[in-house]
């Protein structure tokens, strides 16, 4: 892993939610085979950031580069074609489609790469037996797995994971994170949003802590002590500094 290539680069990004500025002057990079976590309290702007990178929300300032190509003004589906895949908050599978059909929708853009039905089924072998089942009949953890695989089916350069652990039992969350190394092997980068700070610190290469839309702390988990992370998370350090 000497000087890995940058996949996703965000420079000076502002995102507005109506009148409200939800993300302010945010910059970060995610390299190939790297996991970057964005942490922060509720309403810190984490999900807004991911939705903007995916193209659902427009950027009001700054730019988003994918493998050096400016995608800031591209519509969502064009970004998918270039290699940005999303696992949205709350899984959001297509409820009337079967498991297999859900997975196939991920391959809509026909990007070449290692992931296909067989490969994702290897990641979560139980899917093979249940591929004809309607996705609405799956448990929360199973739905999360299908949502990840649906995103992988597009053979992304960057995978955006929004609140992977939301509403799932800890043991299930652990199983999801166990799949991460295999996903990174295929050469993509992962940008994830996580409320579970210890999980984020344990599983990722780089952590960005957001407070009211701004990065207040960032670095490799090994370089961060728990106290300063907590302080950044709850906005205590700002009061001390100011």
């Amino acid at each position: 892993m000497n000087s890995p290539q940058t996949c996703l680069e965000i420079r000076g990004l502002d995102v507005h939610h109506g009148q409200l500025r939800a993300v302010t002057d945010l910059s970060l990079t995610v390299a190939e085979r790297q996991v970057v976590a964005v942490i922060g309290a509720n309403g810190a702007g984490k999900s807004t950031l991911l939705r903007c990178v995916a193209g659902i929300l427009p950027a009001s300032r700054g730019e988003i580069l994918l493998d050096g190509v400016d995608v800031t003004r591209l519509p969502t589906h064009r970004r998918v074609a270039l290699g940005i895949a999303s696992v949205p908050e709350g899984r959001r599978l297509f409820g009337s489609l079967t498991v297999e059909e859900n997975l196939r929708t991920g391959a809509y853009r026909h990007r070449a790469g290692p992931w296909d039905l067989a490969a994702v089924t290897e990641l979560f072998p139980w899917m093979a037996d249940r591929r004809r089942q309607r996705s609405s009949q799956l448990s929360g953890g199973e739905q999360q797995a299908v949502a990840i695989c649906r995103a992988l089916m597009s053979n992304p350069r960057v995978l955006l994971l929004d609140e992977l652990s939301l509403g799932l039992a800890p043991v299930v969350v652990t199983r999801m994170y166990e799949a991460l190394p295999r996903i990174l092997e295929s050469g993509c980068a992962v940008l994830l949003v996580e409320q579970d700070v210890s999980k984020a610190l344990a599983m990722t290469d780089q952590v960005h802590c957001l407070l009211e839309g701004r990065t207040v702390l960032s670095g490799a988990p090994a370089d961060l002590d728990r106290k300063s992370v907590e302080a950044a998370y709850f906005g205590i350090d700002r009061r001390e500094a100011g």
């Binding site: 193209g55 659902i56 969502t76 895949a85 929708t105 995103a151």
Partner: peptide, 24 residues
């Protein structure tokens, strides 16, 4: 067909349909 499947997907959730690459 892929487009037909995407029609059903878009009927369930139009936003996620664009997130998997469909031009709605």
């Amino acid at each position: 067909t892929a487009t037909g499947r995407m029609m059903r997907a878009a009927s369930d959730d139009p936003e996620v349909a664009t997130l998997v690459g469909a031009d709605a």
